[in-house]
Amino acid sequence: MATTPEHDQRMANMTFTSVYPHYLSKVEKKGRSKEELHQVITWLTGYDEVTLRKHISEKITFKEFFAQASLNPNAHLIKGVICGYRIEDITTPLTQQVRFLDKLVDELAKGRKMEKILRVP
């Protein structure tokens, strides 16, 4: 399923700050911690804790958030369906990166083991 240009633009302009509380709430409701959420985000983006907290406090867009990130070389191993889109079929890199993050948060909330989430061989 291909994304539309409008969908891709909406993803690019959405702020990380507006979505982060939803990520945190989702994982905490399922008994996971803020630290585990940060571990997952750090694995995907390469951000250290200081940089991540800075991005959370600022109103940067997902476009800016991922432009400054060093995407994990194993991110391509994140597969599956999220929000009706098969991640590996998304052709817009930024939209795919946002959906990578969404999928990791979902896996964390569903109780998946951290080594599986972080694609540890």
Rank of each mutant, 00 (worst) to 15 (best):
I60W: 03
H55D: 06
V27F: 00
L24D: 00
G111K: 03
K30C: 02
I56K: 13
T91P: 00
S57A: 15
L94P: 11
K116S: 15
V27R: 01
Q96E: 14
I56D: 00
G80I: 09
C83N: 12
V19W: 04
Y23Q: 01
Y85T: 06
V98W: 01
I87R: 07
E64H: 09
F16R: 02
T92F: 07
R99E: 12
A69L: 10
L44P: 15
P21R: 02
G84M: 04
L44V: 10
E64S: 13
Y85C: 04
A69V: 09
T17P: 00
K79E: 13
T15E: 13
Y23K: 01
E35I: 08
E115F: 12
T61P: 05
G111F: 03
F16S: 03
A75N: 03
I56L: 05
Q39G: 11
T45Y: 07
S70A: 14
E35R: 13
V81L: 02
L37D: 05
H22Y: 07
P93V: 05
T51C: 01
I41N: 05
I117E: 05
L71D: 04
P93A: 04
E28P: 00
V40N: 02
V19A: 11
R32M: 06
G80V: 10
Q96C: 07
L52I: 07
S25L: 03
R53D: 15
E35V: 11
H38W: 04
H76F: 13
E88T: 08
I90F: 08
T42R: 12
E35Y: 04
K59R: 11
K54I: 05
K26A: 01
E35T: 13
L52D: 06
T51H: 01
L118E: 09
T51M: 09
K110Q: 14
V19G: 00
A67G: 02
M114C: 06
K79I: 12
L44M: 11
M114Y: 07
Q97A: 08
K26E: 09
E58Q: 13
G84I: 06
D106M: 09
E107Q: 15
T15M: 10
V50N: 12
G31Y: 08
I82F: 11
R53A: 11
L101M: 15
K79C: 06
R112M: 15
Y85W: 13
P73A: 14
K110L: 14
T95S: 12
Y20Q: 06
S33K: 10
I90S: 11
L77H: 12
Q68T: 14
D48T: 01
Q96F: 02
Q39H: 03
V98R: 12
H38L: 01
T17H: 15
K30H: 06
N74T: 11
T95M: 09
L52H: 12
E107T: 01
T15P: 07
Q97P: 02
I90M: 10
R112A: 04
K116T: 12
E64I: 07
I82D: 05
Q68R: 15
